[in-house]
């Protein structure tokens, strides 16, 4: 059994917590850079494309809304909180799917889920016909939208399947910028992606703190403990664990450059979620007999780069 205390120095990670600037740039550069997080979903998607190439598909003027919200007294949105754009990125064919975390917490409903699946399937069809088309997922989502429960959950299963089909031909890149993060079933969608990019402000996990506190008690997880939350889900920790590929600052230019580089790199030789034996043996080596405290969270996947 490995000791839990022997690797990660969480106090270092905590210093890079929410909103902290990277040590790698000067204060002047920090103040001058353009935030990616402050862009809305449509602006984020558009920013990634080569100039003048972005074209929105099934946009708000198509008015394909969720059929399930109004009957529950929830105001639907004309794009169902999901934006799809096609164009080129670094000269390569690409589709970007961006979730609007401000609408129903970015929750996956029937329409937003089917929109993502359809975009992935069309990119896959083009790729199979020799026109490789990458996909970039801008994930701001708490997972399944509970007002559409079973159709949301079904959509997530279909999204996972369609990512796996496409990533054999062209990279599928999940970007988790924040502030909502990526939780619930959509954390599996990120998990099966070719690459994951996060900011320090982004968070990634299956169950959010509130859900764990509710299901397993406050002694299991105190959802008000921000240090604990960021020490577990935050982009810096996920990067240290080798659970994501690139950690970026909250900087639009850096994010654009990173996405360009990953698309140019193409599909990885093996995807993270295919490496079952590697990760299974890491879990086997851990000792869960006592609770893991934030200061002793071992970066058990730190050897995986």
């Amino acid at each position: 059994m490995s000791s839990l205390a022997d690797v990660a120095n969480l106090s270092d990670i905590a210093k890079g917590g929410v909103g902290a600037k990277s040590a790698s740039i000067s204060t002047r550069e920090y103040l001058q850079r353009r935030s990616f997080i402050e862009l809305n979903a449509r602006e984020r998607a558009k920013a990634l494309f080569d100039s003048e190439t972005a074209r929105e598909l099934a946009g708000p003027f198509d008015r394909i809304e969720s059929p399930w919200l109004a009957i529950q007294g929830v105001t639907p949105q004309a794009d169902d909180g999901c934006i799809v754009m096609r164009g080129t990125i670094g000269g390569n064919q690409a589709v970007v799917i961006a979730f609007n975390g401000a609408f129903q917490g970015g929750g996956i409903g029937e329409v937003s889920g089917a929109k993502l699946t359809a975009a992935l399937d069309l990119a896959c069809r083009d790729s199979e016909n020799g026109k490789n088309t990458s996909a970039v997922l801008l994930l701001e989502t708490g997972g399944v939208r509970l007002q559409e429960a079973n159709l949301g959950l079904a959509a997530v299963a279909e999204i996972i399947s369609s990512i796996i089909a496409l990533r054999a031909h062209a990279p599928v890149i999940s970007v988790i910028a924040g502030p909502v993060g990526c939780f619930g079933g959509m954390s599996l969608a990120a998990g099966v992606s070719s690459y994951i990019v996060m900011t320090r402000e982004g968070r990634l996990g299956l169950n959010g703190p509130e859900v764990i506190e509710e299901e397993s008690g406050v002694e299991e997880f105190d959802a008000t403990d921000r240090t604990l939350i960021w020490s577990i889900y935050g982009g810096q920790q996920r990067y240290n664990q080798g659970l994501i590929d690139v950690l970026v600052d909250d900087d639009a230019d850096q994010t654009i450059k990173t996405v360009n580089e990953l698309i140019a790199k193409g599909v990885p030789p093996i995807n993270r979620s295919e490496q079952v034996d590697v990760y299974r043996s890491r879990i086997a080596a851990l000792d869960p007999s006592t609770q893991w405290e934030p200061e002793s969270v071992r970066s058990f996947t730190s050897h995986h780069k």
Partner: peptide
């Protein structure tokens, strides 16, 4: 969550 259950589930 610390152990990355999202990746286990994805795998």
């Amino acid at each position: 969550e610390i152990g990355g259950i999202h990746l286990a589930a994805a795998a």
